[in-house]
């Protein structure tokens, strides 16, 4: 059994895949989306150099200003420059988005694999996953943040935990239908070790759904951070995050829609890029979609 998936994951083949990815229309999409992500990450990283104002400096005489040459995106209710806050906000929001995605996908993959493959562990693990998942995500996050205090770390964990069972369930669903596939059965009968079986046959079949789910987790993590801020239990409101800026802008929506519009625009751009990247990769890695296309 050597499908394109398997070769895609071995080292020399990976290089050839990468080079094949860079050609044609796919190459353009990947180039653009990666460029967008890098640009936003770079802007956030370079915030101290680029921001015209201190994102924390209050100026009570310049509250709620509309966009102008002085304040590109206007000012918030404390007279802080929104452009500077959006630049700085990218740092925390991206860290939370990336961090939650890695944590959730990593943990969920392991749990889903174990659960999908070892029927003995399945019952117990899935019951715990059911339990975790049954609890309303936001409430769980609120309680965790209240318990441990509002820091980037706790918010990250609070956002990640409810995402894990979702990832695990999807991985398990895929494994359940793959493990009875003829090529897996064949490998098992021929005495392939479990670790190898997983690495070669089961994990690759989860790549596609995980790329899709991962992009969703990324989006949802950044938005959940906003909801936590909205409920008053997010990262300290002084620290700019896209979520914080938007939740504050929410109160002034009819007065200064820009307070939501600008961070929402950049946020949407980032998520759009991440998802398109995920989709392209998914199409590429999926053996059937390639072999099947005449």
């Amino acid at each position: 059994m050597s499908g394109p998936v398997e070769t895609a994951l071995s080292r020399p083949a990976l290089l050839s895949v990468l080079s094949s990815l860079m050609t044609g229309r796919k190459g353009v999409v990947i180039g653009v989306t990666v460029a967008v992500l890098f640009a936003v990450a770079a802007l956030s990283a370079l915030a101290p150099l680029l921001a015209p104002y201190d994102p924390l400096a209050l100026n009570m005489t310049a509250r709620l200003r509309p966009s102008s040459a002085e304040h590109l995106m206007g000012t918030d209710a404390y007279g802080r420059d929104i452009f500077s806050r959006v630049l700085y906000g990218g740092r925390i929001s991206l860290v939370i988005g990336v961090g939650a995605t890695l944590l959730a996908v990593g943990t969920g993959l392991v749990i889903g694999l174990v659960s999908g493959f070892f029927r003995a562990a399945d019952a117990v693990i899935m019951r715990i996953m059911d339990g975790l998942m049954a609890m309303p995500a936001v409430l769980l996050a609120v309680a965790i943040v209240a318990l441990a205090g509002a820091s980037v770390g706790t918010v990250l964990v609070a956002i990640t935990i409810p995402e894990i069972p979702r990832v695990a369930r999807i991985v398990r669903a895929v494994i359940l239908s793959t493990r009875s596939a003829p090529f897996v059965e064949a490998a098992r009968i021929s005495g392939t070790r479990i670790g190898k079986l997983m690495w070669r046959h089961l994990i690759p079949s989860t790549v596609a759904p995980l790329l899709v789910q991962g992009s969703y987790v990324f989006a949802s993590a950044i938005l959940t951070e906003a909801v936590l801020s909205f409920l008053g239990v997010g990262i300290s409101p002084d620290i700019p995050t896209w979520g914080n800026i938007m939740s504050e802008g929410r109160m002034f929506f009819s007065l200064r829609p820009g307070m939501i519009f600008w961070p929402a625009l950049i946020l949407s751009l980032v998520i759009l890029a991440a998802n398109m990247l995920g989709d392209v990769l998914r199409d590429h890695f999926d053996p059937r979609s390639k072999t099947g296309r005449a």
Binding site: A219, L223, A226, F230, R250, S254, A264, L267, I271
Partner: peptide, 22 residues
């Protein structure tokens, strides 16, 4: 459709809500 669906879950719920209410 992909672009629309992606846009759909990248805009905060309350922004869509306020726009529709308005």
């Amino acid at each position: 459709a992909v672009a629309f669906s992606v846009l759909g879950f990248s805009i905060p719920v309350f922004v869509i809500a306020y726009m529709l209410i308005q």
